[in-house]
Write a protein that binds this DNA or RNA. Structure first.
Lengths: 157, 157
DNA sequence: GGTGTTGCGTGCAAGTCGCACGCGCTTCTC
DNA sequence: GAGAAGCGCGTGCGACTTGCACGCAACACC
């Protein structure tokens, strides 16, 4: 069982990781070369949609952690960039389903591949167990806080 | 040596962790109960100052990853909240040193302790090696991108 | 059929972010 | 030493983001 010294170290490390500088270092280079319509704001929406599949704006906003209004606006951008399509939900004509177009899907795949390559380069010298432990640790860390939720689909787009 | 499958998993896990929702889950509860002047924007400045010791606004902004103007403005807030003091640098009268007041220092310590307690609770069931591997992994991940930099002081406030 | 609820998209105000400017100080050059 | 060039700081400003609140359309319940 982990003691408080470890917790303190983790707090420090996590704090560093979440600093804007380091978040940017991990993502900006990739996103700066992203196609029109994709940027720091819209990428999470795009990526979340790939993860969840066609979804309502509200559900998507909740997944990403932004306001519904933001999700709607960013969907506008992605839509005019041809990466996303709105279609009425056949089951509920109030609802609008947001779905990636083939181009949108291809974009997500390409961006993810680029990110993956960057990361692969960065962890190239690590032993496998170290990388695996990092992955497991992160997953443990972000799975727990979801105590309020039940459904836990993890479909990869 | 880590292969690309691991990199892909890591990309997915990291992406999730950096989502606004999860970042918020880790920090918002603590920051919402923070004293006047401390919020999502000013906390990194406060914390960075504790880490680096008295520093110029420019250096601090670089550390946190925001613009100098932002650092200056957030310093204003922290200053009027009594958590930070500006003093002219005796070596260079252009420069202004930002330094925590005793109250500021106490605030950082308190907030860090709270964060640490939250994390300790969250990792309570983990085996030590898992927590340690997560910490090491994060540190490896954020140390590498600093290739452009030389100095690497790690003083804890 | 009527009433309350839900999902959506937009208007709006507050806040954030980064560029660019002007001012004071330092450093360099002669 | 005196002038010029460079640097650090704080602020004005415009573009953008963010979340609340509203109105509209559609559903659900009685």
């Amino acid at each position: 069982m982990a003691d408080t010294g470890l917790a303190r170290d983790l707090e420090q490390a996590l704090g560093q990781l979440l600093l804007r500088r380091n978040r940017s270092a991990l993502y900006d280079a990739v996103l700066d070369s992203a196609p029109t319509g994709v940027d720091r704001q819209t990428y999470p929406v795009l990526s979340g949609l790939a993860r969840l599949g066609p979804q309502s704006a509200a559900r998507l906003a909740d997944e990403v952690g932004i306001d519904r209004s933001g999700a709607s606006r960013y969907a506008d951008r992605l839509e005019s960039a041809g990466l996303l399509e709105r279609s009425p939900d056949p089951r509920d004509r109030r609802a609008t389903l947001l779905a990636l177009t083939p181009e949108g899907h291809a974009t997500v795949v390409k961006l993810r591949d680029t990110l993956t390559r960057h990361l692969a380069y960065r962890i190239a010298d690590w032993p496998d167990w170290q990388a695996q432990a990092l992955i497991d640790g992160i997953r443990l860390l972000i799975d727990e806080p979801r105590e309020g939720r039940e459904e836990q689909e993890e479909g990869v787009g």
